[in-house]
Amino acid sequence: MTAAEHTAPQKTTAHAPGHAPRARVTVTLKNGVLDPQGKAIEGALASLGIAGIAGVRQGKVFDIALAGADPEHARALLGEACEKLLANTVIENYSIELLDA
């Protein structure tokens, strides 16, 4: 990556008219749940000689375009989306971030 690319403002390629609000949902494993994938990644980082990493836990990020702009409604529907599908609350936690509502 060039310096220019690195510092370029993060822009989406096309702005829809009206600029749809977006949200980011992050799903992570609960503390204490074993994460074999995170362990494998941790091992691979160590084998690359990248020192100073004490542990890796793998999670998921969902970038979501919202159809409406009301933040309260957005939080409610995203909470429902997490509870019903995006996270398995037996083993995972989730957090919701509204980006430009």
């Binding site: 749940v33 074993l34 074999p36 994938q37 398995n88 083993i91």
Partner: peptide, 15 residues
């Protein structure tokens, strides 16, 4: 996943 049985099946410990 549907809640009909408890627990969850995760990645095999040996990957």
């Amino acid at each position: 996943e549907s809640g009909l049985l408890p627990g969850v099946l995760m990645r095999n410990a040996g990957l």
